[in-house]
């Protein structure tokens, strides 16, 4: 099987967000990680290979630092990596990213059986690339997947939906977006890390893909970022339990008017 995992390098979830003077979010001194949901995607890709044979190709769009994220996935057990890197992709919107990925996957990396992504990235929280990519590649998709089985060229996926879950069946090739719970993500082993250094990592520009900067011009433009209004600590209620509870209920009812 040819198995593809699409990843994104994001800020660590513990990162403090700083908005620079230009109204853009600063990445200075921020620890970068593989988007946590994409780790489930990579893990599932590797498990799929371990069960069915084949190769795992991990792909991303990013800058120089994104190579570290790809090497991490190679150390987990992916076979090779492709980085789409181009000045025209800096600050690209979800549409542009899916156009670049779709072009890569429909031409240079055609012939895949299954594509894994995370259900969303923890930075922009947009959750757009999985659905956009599935549409551009004309694939069946299962979103927010917590369980997956593959047999006889078919995928059966359990998907989290509001208030419950749903089971979907589809023929391969298909796109699966991973949710926490799909698997337990492995840590790279020391030999895995050593091996990863020699695994192929190809860097492609937009022109290598046959795309121009115009093809990926963003439609969604961030005018400015701002910090949310800071919440202030409110009242501390003290006293005996009964007294405190009576105070709390009275405040919720009469002051906050929420019960």
């Amino acid at each position: 099987m040819k198995i593809v995992a699409c990843i994104k390098q994001t800020f660590d979830t513990e990162a403090k967000i700083v908005v620079g003077g230009n109204g853009q979010i600063s990445d200075e001194g921020v620890n970068l990680i593989v988007n946590p949901y994409d780790e489930f995607a990579v893990e599932e890709a590797i498990r799929t290979k371990e069960k069915n044979g084949g190769e795992v190709v991990v792909v991303t769009v990013g800058g120089d630092k994104a190579q570290e994220a790809l090497r991490y996935c190679l150390a987990m057990g992916a076979d090779r990596a492709v980085l789409i890197q181009d000045a025209a992709m800096v600050g690209a919107d979800s549409r542009a990213v899916s156009i670049a990925l779709a072009k890569l996957l429909s031409e240079k990396e055609a012939g895949y059986d299954i594509i894994f992504t995370g259900k969303e990235a923890v930075d922009d929280g947009a959750a757009q690339v999985p659905s956009r990519l599935a549409e551009k590649l004309d694939l069946a998709q299962a979103n927010v997947v917590t369980a997956l089985s593959l047999a006889d060229g078919k995928a059966t996926a359990t998907c989290e939906i509001d208030g419950g879950s749903e089971i979907l069946e589809m023929a391969l090739p298909a796109l699966i977006s991973a949710q926490k719970g799909l698997n337990e993500v492995r840590y790279p082993s020391l030999p895995g890390i050593m091996k990863a250094k020699r695994k192929p990592l190809e860097v492609l520009s937009l022109s290598d893909l046959g795309l121009s900067a115009d093809d990926v011009a963003s439609k969604v433009v961030l005018a400015a970022a701002e910090l949310p209004p800071a919440r202030k600590a409110g009242q501390r209620l003290t006293g005996e339990v009964d007294e405190v509870v009576a105070k709390l209920v009275k405040l919720l009812k009469e002051e906050a008017k929420v019960i």
């Binding site: 919107d93 959750a127 757009q128 659905s131 927010v144 439609k219 969604v220």
Partner: peptide, 23 residues
Amino acid sequence: HSSFGKELAPRAAAKVDCGLVSD
């Protein structure tokens, strides 16, 4: 921005080829 819209909106946006702001 429910499980329905989260999945459908980007798929439709790709088909229409338009920009989408989520959430």
